[in-house]
């Protein structure tokens, strides 16, 4: 039974969608907070879920799509497990944020158009200003803020996360056979 949480993950997420919709009484005026809450569950907004939201709220799907594509906060493509945000506002830009961005992209093999790594571990984004100009240049990885960042330090941070993830994966792998046994 150990593997079940992963297996029923999608069903659970869908039940969450239902409860999110209920929480906002399925009112069209709640569209934006509903999309925010759904993105929190899925890390992005899957098309089929948006269709379901549109049906439930009695809003045309084209309108839901319009809202979802208007706000930079909403993602219609899956994002990586770790989201790296590099500030490229005026202060950070002047303080050499671009070399940091370039170093990270080179390290992870991403581009502006395809910002997520193939293993779905990382997504690199730029933001216009994080409001922390005193710490310029600034990088935010997941919820953690790193000030006065250099290309070298940024790459080192990525290496650290990679190492942690590799440890997690091998731990999972040792667990995996027992899960297989349960399923059989």
């Amino acid at each position: 039974m150990a593997s079940m949480p992963i297996v029923v993950d999608r069903a659970e997420k869908f039940e969450k969608v239902v409860s999110i919709l209920d929480h906002y009484s399925r009112r069209p005026s709640g569209l934006i907070p509903i999309l925010q809450a759904i993105q929190h569950e899925y890390q992005y907004l899957p098309e089929e879920v948006l269709t379901y939201v549109a049906t439930s709220l009695d809003v045309p799907p084209a309108r839901v799509y319009g809202v979802a594509t208007f706000y930079a906060h909403f993602a219609l493509e899956p994002k990586g497990k770790h989201v790296i945000r590099i500030c490229d506002g005026t202060a950070c830009h002047v303080k050499q944020s671009l070399p940091v961005l370039n170093a990270l992209r080179e390290k992870l093999g991403t581009t502006e158009k395809s910002a997520t790594t193939a293993d779905m571990l990382f997504t690199i984004e730029t933001v216009a200003c994080l409001g922390a100009c005193g710490l310029a240049p600034v990088v935010v990885i997941d919820e953690q803020v790193y000030g006065q960042i250099t290309p070298q330090r940024a790459v080192a941070l990525v290496d650290e996360i990679k190492a942690t993830e590799a440890g997690l994966a091998s731990a999972l792998e040792t667990e995996q056979p027992s899960a297989e046994v349960v399923n059989e």
Binding site: L50, T51, P60, A62, R63, Y65, G66, T69, F70, Y71
Partner: peptide, 28 residues
């Protein structure tokens, strides 16, 4: 009362299109 097309995206990328960038013949 249909709303088969609407504005999508933002700034100079704005365009009027059916949901999810689909074709007009595939929507409502």
């Amino acid at each position: 009362g249909i709303g088969a097309i609407d504005f999508a995206h933002r700034g100079h990328e704005v365009s009027v299109q059916p949901a999810f960038g689909k074709l007009l013949g595939d929507v409502e």
